[in-house]
């Protein structure tokens, strides 16, 4: 299941400037009252965004997790700092064997500013 919406129903929200998000790491932005984790995957030249809430123990923590990739397909992932459950940054699926699913969001970077589509 893809939770990326069709472009025309998306509203792009300005989140922060590019330099606010550490390279190869994440940070959390408050958008429309929601906590959104934004990741600057510099190594791959890609940006990702997910919910900040880890579904395991309901902690607002994913933005503080380490990112990386796994498997033949180099699936990009984030590991929650609390108990290291890992989630795909592409699909939001839990990669460490539990039945969790997190929300992912589209991100675009224009003129040094980061936008998240909700």
């Amino acid at each position: 299941m893809s939770n990326i919406l069709a472009e025309d129903t998306l509203v792009w929200h300005l989140a922060c400037s590019e330099v606010d998000i550490p390279e190869n790491g994440g940070a959390c932005a408050l958008i429309e009252g929601e906590q959104i984790a934004i990741y600057n995957f510099k190594r791959r030249g890609e940006w990702f965004a997910t919910q900040n809430l880890c579904p395991h123990r309901q902690q607002m923590a994913l933005s503080r997790g380490m990112i990386g990739s796994t498997g033949e397909e180099q699936e990009p992932k984030v590991a929650c700092p609390f108990h290291k459950k890992t989630f795909s940054l592409k699909t939001g699926a839990c990669l460490s064997g539990d039945d969790y699913q997190i929300q992912t969001y589209p991100v675009k970077v224009e003129n040094g500013m980061v936008y998240v589509g909700l």
């Binding site: 190869n24 790491g25 994440g26 902690q59 923590a61 503080r64 380490m66 700092p81 609390f82």
Partner: peptide
């Protein structure tokens, strides 16, 4: 030098994370 985001979470914030964040 960009080594901050490769630290385990506790090292990254120079403090131990607790049950409520």
């Amino acid at each position: 030098k960009g080594n901050d985001t490769v630290q385990d979470s506790n090292d990254r914030y120079l403090a131990n994370i607790q049950k409520n964040g």
